[in-house]
Design a protein around this nucleic acid. Structure first.
Lengths: 257, 257
DNA sequence: CATCATCTGTTATTTTTCTAACATTTTTTG
DNA sequence: CAAAAAATGTTAGAAAAATAACAGATGATG
């Protein structure tokens, strides 16, 4: 890659910075070179941009990432999450105000919200906000603050109070670890405040986790299992969770999706 | 479109709800039909999904929208905005905390932030947050609240106080209308509070507008022109703005980009 | 200025995607 | 159950995109 090539790449990158795509022919016009030169530039670059059917786009844009690959295991993972979210969605009623946690577990749930007439979603995650922002029937409240790349979510000192001020019907919480003795945990400490605030203010608290999280403890503890009304999980995790039912004073109901 | 076709479309739409793309072959596998059937389904649907080089995606996803079309006027518009933002970017120093307004005018500015070692960006716009969120060198503070589709931004009663609490060096403000007598205005009333708060707390206030906004008054007034330290604009708008300089008690400096 | 290396444009070829046509299967209807 | 209609699959051809190969242009170097 030479100087002029780098210049062209920078120019294109700037054009694409705000999101969107640009057709090869237009990229060529913009830079005043042939389409072939643009192809060569992009091929010789560090892979920041790629072509998708003749359209140039930023490669690192998660929007362009293939949802999943049926040939790999990711497909089954996705379908499992989908099933889990279908179970979770059965708790939603018309007009509800929902708290939706960060992470990828609850993403399939968002597409199911289109079925309703009117809902309100409260979240502190950027990926959730982007997905909900496209739904015309859902009011979106995003709890802002300092952005954390790691979890695509926001954290702030006022998060706890901000959540408490809202009238949340149902809280859908995800977790990175669920242990019968040591409780429910996640990776990032800034997630603790919004999760706990949602658990305290929501009328119905729903934990959505698959079997891979069972028996795992992560750095940031945020609740005991008894803090939830319902645990939506898969068939593999259900027995262990149900066994607990007898011992605890107020065990959550276990729903197998 | 029949029942099964609708089922398949719904299935695919769910797969794409969280953003991303899915290849035609995978969509066919997922639905257990041939690729041709998927093509027909999508063609007969309401246009919610489209193909781009064999990849299926949500049509309304702004991420996939072409950045601009050189054949139409939009191309020159884009380049003008780019120039404007280059002028605006010259005011940024290493370590600054920037307030970035909503709208599309300032989007090209964001890609120029990658040049710096460390910056902080404060915004209340979802599109700005998405663009800044990809920059590793920029800390992002998003001011949350209720989402407004119209301007892709958030509004809340606490917006004013939230901005005032932050230490903002430079505020980059966009506007839909600039009139020498009747001041600077925008379309949406919920934008007034954050704009005014930013103007009050920022050390340096920079208005970025092109000539098409000059002499225009929009419903939501938010400031007099004298509230700004600098106006970054194009050659076409500069004369009218400079003429004002003599009369006003503290006229903004006009920078032609 | 001549020579070399590099960059770019043009053309040709292969691959992939898109469209259309027709064959087959499934569902509906009398 | 037979006929008609609809849905789906298969194949073939057209269009577009991706790749490769070669030729001309540009710029550096001695």
């Amino acid at each position: 890659m030479n100087g002029r090539s780098a210049m062209r790449l920078a120019r294109l990158q700037e054009a694409l910075a705000g999101g969107g795509t640009i057709h090869l022919s237009e990229a060529a016009k913009l830079c005043g070179v042939s389409e072939m030169t643009i192809r060569r530039d992009v091929a010789a670059s560090d892979g920041a941009m790629t072509f998708l059917g003749g359209h140039l786009m930023m490669a690192d844009n998660p929007q362009f990432a293939p949802v999943y690959d049926l040939d790999e295991q990711r497909g089954s993972h996705y379908l499992a999450k989908q099933r889990l979210c279908q179970g979770a969605a059965s708790f939603i009623d018309e007009g509800d105000t929902l708290f939706i946690d960060c992470g990828t577990t609850l993403m399939p749930l968002l597409s199911m919200l289109g079925e309703f007439e009117e809902l309100t979603v409260v979240t502190y995650a950027l990926n959730v906000a982007n997905a909900v922002g496209t739904l015309p029937n859902v009011r979106l409240v995003l709890l802002g603050g300092l952005y954390h790349h790691s979890s695509q979510s926001f954290g702030s000192g006022e998060m706890y109070d901000a959540v408490r001020r809202l009238g949340i019907n149902k809280a859908f919480i995800s977790a990175a670890g669920v242990d019968l003795e040591r409780g429910v945990s996640c990776f990032h400490f800034h997630e603790v405040a919004p999760k706990q605030a949602a658990l305290e203010s929501a009328l119905c608290r729903i934990l959505v986790v698959d079997a891979s999280k069972l028996g795992v403890v992560r750095p940031a503890y945020f609740a005991q299992l008894t803090a939830f009304d319902v645990v939506v999980t898969d068939a593999k995790a259900a027995p262990a969770l149900n066994a607990r039912a007898g011992g605890a004073n107020r065990p959550p109901r276990v729903m197998v999706a």
